[in-house]
Amino acid sequence: MAELETRELEYFVAVAEELHFGRAAARLAIAQPALSKAIRRLESRLGVQLLVRSSRHVALTPAGEALLHHGRHALNAVSAAIEKARRAVDRQAHLRLVIKPGGDANLLSGILAAYADQPDARQVDILFGGATDRADHVRDGRADAALLYVPFDDMTGLDHVTLTVEGRVAILPPDHRLAARPEVTLADLAQETLPRWKGVRWTGAPEGGLGPEVTDAAEVLHMVRLGRTIAMLPRSLAQPTHPDLVYRPVTDAPHSELVLAWARDDRRPMVASFVAAAVDAAGTA
């Protein structure tokens, strides 16, 4: 990088994520004055102000927001390049698939069986990620492939194939005003309190009341049982159903897609073979 070194980018991303020079310095294991000096030097060389500093807080400028967004992807790309270079010479490398618990629409067993029948099949290591970080596992080389949900997951830098398309259901307490209906619409949910998914910008749900922040389906169901929110989930993520809750189809909600994703520049036969087996097992060829 002519104007931006990888280490400087790491420093900036740490400060931008922590919004606190002391915490960022501790995270990076460097002295706070050295970190502050590095950020000022970076701003001077780029000719833009990245951070607004005061005695009480640190905030990102629009330029800082842009550098944080693209800087994360750049650091992921560097990490992925290093990891893939190391793994390219490892003929015994396992294939690493990242999923979230319950996030396979009951397809994973069939996919693994179909892949095991391939003559070049490798051992598959299953990794578990959170609601929004699984794509990053692929981008930074921690995983070779991921099961993701479109449109919820960030697909930047990834190729993917759709394994199944499904509708969504509203999850309600049994005494809710909509519970007696056989199905509901987005308009029915428009005034309801809905959860905020951490790290997800758009879910296709109407903008209702400001509900609790959640990170996975288990948290959502717990909050619904407590009466703090209702929820709208892809049908497969709402399984198994909970006996204390009511599930109703949302007839006009945008469909969600369960996809198998891999890095856009990954042309390894191991990954291609796994993708082909998944497509065959899911019946989407």
Results as ranks from 00 to 15, higher is better:
106 N>V: 00
189 L>P: 00
240 P>R: 11
277 A>Y: 12
25 A>W: 10
80 A>L: 04
216 D>C: 03
108 L>W: 12
31 A>P: 06
145 A>T: 12
117 D>S: 04
135 A>C: 03
21 F>A: 12
222 H>Y: 08
201 R>V: 12
280 D>R: 13
91 R>S: 12
75 L>M: 01
50 L>K: 08
76 N>T: 00
95 L>H: 06
278 A>H: 10
11 Y>T: 01
183 E>Q: 15
25 A>V: 10
198 K>H: 12
131 A>K: 09
77 A>S: 15
118 Q>H: 11
31 A>M: 07
82 I>D: 01
62 P>W: 14
77 A>L: 09
198 K>L: 11
174 P>E: 04
212 P>Q: 06
155 M>W: 13
187 A>S: 05
23 R>T: 09
77 A>D: 12
196 R>K: 11
90 D>A: 03
45 R>N: 02
235 R>T: 15
122 R>K: 15
275 V>Y: 10
122 R>D: 01
196 R>P: 01
127 L>C: 06
177 R>Y: 02
198 K>F: 11
127 L>D: 07
133 D>P: 13
198 K>W: 09
268 R>I: 00
176 H>M: 01
165 V>P: 00
257 E>R: 14
42 L>N: 03
71 G>M: 08
204 G>V: 10
279 V>N: 02
274 F>K: 05
204 G>A: 14
186 L>R: 15
230 I>C: 12
90 D>R: 15
181 R>P: 00
19 L>M: 08
61 T>Q: 13
113 A>C: 05
196 R>E: 09
124 V>I: 13
52 V>R: 15
266 D>K: 03
6 T>D: 05
255 H>T: 04
242 H>L: 07
142 R>P: 08
195 P>K: 01
15 V>I: 12
228 R>H: 05
279 V>Q: 12
281 A>G: 14
43 E>M: 07
18 E>Q: 15
221 L>T: 03
110 G>P: 01
151 P>L: 06
39 I>V: 14
278 A>K: 14
71 G>W: 11
189 L>V: 00
124 V>F: 08
163 L>E: 09
173 P>R: 10
203 T>D: 07
104 D>K: 07
263 A>Q: 02
22 G>F: 10
233 L>M: 07
99 I>T: 02
227 G>Y: 03
281 A>M: 11
234 P>E: 10
128 F>V: 06
53 R>W: 06
17 E>P: 07
177 R>E: 06
281 A>H: 14
224 V>K: 00
85 A>H: 07
30 I>Y: 09
132 T>R: 04
65 E>D: 08
120 D>G: 02
144 D>T: 05
78 V>S: 02
61 T>K: 14
285 A>P: 05
60 L>I: 12
23 R>I: 13
276 A>T: 05
181 R>W: 11
91 R>M: 08
88 A>Q: 11
172 L>Q: 05
70 H>P: 05
232 M>Y: 04
9 L>Q: 02
225 R>C: 06
142 R>M: 14
41 R>F: 15
10 E>M: 10
